[in-house]
Structure formats: C-alpha cells, structure tokens
Amino acid sequence: MTKFLQTLMDGTAVGSLYALIALGYTMVYGILRFINFAHSDVFMLGAWFSYEVAKIMGWTGQDQSHPVWASAFVIVAVMVACGTLGFVIERGAYRPLRSAPRINVLITAIGVSLFLENSGQLPFLLGTQPQRMPTLMPEHALFAVAGVSVRAVDLLVIGISFALMALLEWIIYGTKLGLAMRAVSYDTKVAALMGIPVDRVISMTFVVGSALAAAAGFLYATKYPGINQPAHPTWVLLGLKAFVAAVVGGIGNLRGAMAGGLMIGLVELFGAAYLSPHLRDVYVFTLLILVLLFRPEGLLGKATIEKV
C-alpha cells in the first residue's frame, strides 16, 4: 500500500510535468500542423535558466535558507525568459517558412533544437558540466499518509502544474485571445478574414507554450535537482515522452495532452515500481504503439481525414 501510494504520487507529479510540456507540442500542432522539435529544448532551458536565475540572486545553498518567495520569483522569471525565447524562435525560424512545405518547417525545427542544445554548451553560456539546482522549496516531510511521507516539494509540483493547466484552460476557453487561437487552429484564412491578426496569435501560442515548458523545467529541476548539461540525451527523451503524451491524448487536443501526460507519468512509474525499473521507457513507448494501433486519433482526439 505504501509503495502504491508513493508511486501514485510520484507518477502524478512526473505526469503533470509531461502534461505541461505536451501542451506546448499540441498547441503548436493545433495551429500550424507541425511538430516543434525545439520544444524539448525550451523545457531544458527552463530548468537551466532556473539554476542561473537562482545563482544570480545569490540563492545557491542546499539548506533552504532562501526567502519563501524565491520559488515564485524564479518560476516567473524563467517563464518570461522562455516565453520570449519561444517568440524569437517563431519569428526568426518558423515565420519565414509560413508558406513553405511542412517538411521544411519540420527540418528547421530539428535544426533549432540542435542549435539550442549545442550552443547552450558553449563555455561562456551554460557549459558542459551538470549542475545542482539549489533547494528553493522545503524538502522535509509535511505529513505522512499510510507510511508515505508527503514533501512540500511534491505537493507544490503537482499543485503548480494543475494551477497552470487551469490557467491555460481559462485562457483558451475564457478569453478573446483563446477564442482567436481556436478560430485560427480551425481555419487560418477565414480567421484572418474575420479580422484576427493571425501572425500575432501564432506568436502568442509560442509564448504561452514555451512559458508552460519553462515552468515544467523549473519544477523538474526542483524535484530532480541534478541538471544535466544542455545536450545530454535525457532532455530529448523527456521531451519525446511529453510528445508521446500529446499523441496518446490526441494531438491538437488540450485536454488530451493533459490526460496523456498524466497517463504517461503513471504508466512509467508504475511499470518501474512493479515490473522492472530498467524498462521504464519501454512502457511509455509500448503505450504509444498500442494507442497508434487501436486508436490512432488519440484517446480524446477526433478521427480526421487528412486534407490534401
């Protein structure tokens, strides 16, 4: 029982991080119909910028001697930084290709991804050494349920993720910007005809998606403080799993990305806990294969006929 609850909590925490990243993939796909491969690098930079911001602020210790608002400060700072980065990536790399075939954009995305990973390792930028994220959130056990000690950091990771997802829901379904995003995702040309500045809406989609990935990067670094160097393959793997989450949930579908993320996290951690910890990646990709075989449109996606 203890093991079950512990796995459930960890799976939910990891899953909610996958969900945050998956939302960025799915939003961009929903509007531009291409996979933004550079998205996992924005997530990676979210983790790294968290470390750098904490360092600049002088919050370097592992002893929780930092102000209570340190986490809030860092998360907002990295969301702004990565949101800006997402804006620049779209403006500089993707917008010039707006009328090019989709394969060109896809290849460009891979190029942006490689550029971010490898230029990030330059000695005067982030460097080639892994770093340790300072402890900004209390790590001691708050209380215990059935033998499982619940740490504040775990609750905060889950709480912040869900709060951000609720915020996104509100943006998409409750604001004029969200209405414009949904209209553009259905028909770009008609949306423009209605007076929607399509390019600006696409920019905002990248800003919002990148900010969510940045928050996920911060939360990931908080939960797992060992930050690997920018070009380390774990980042790509994490991004890939988040992408799988978006596909499993139904690419282009927001709630699908959220549900898919949680599902991937739970499948991964339950598999690792009860079957074999060495095969944790296998469970995720097995789930992907099963979904693609039996419900290729994703769990919450609608079957569509590819337009030609």
Partner: peptide, 28 residues
Amino acid sequence: GLGIAHSPEGRGVFANLTVEENLQVGAY
C-alpha cells in the same frame, strides 16, 4: 477594421466553436 466584411464561399464557419463564439469572432 475599415468596414468591409466578407462572408466567404463555402461559408467557412468554425465547426469547433459554438454558434455564439462564431459570432464573437465576427466582432473580433
């Protein structure tokens, strides 16, 4: 914005939005 609205061929309604939301897009 200058005062010309175009109802396109094939209607072009946003099938993924409600009727009211479609109208709101018109007033964008």
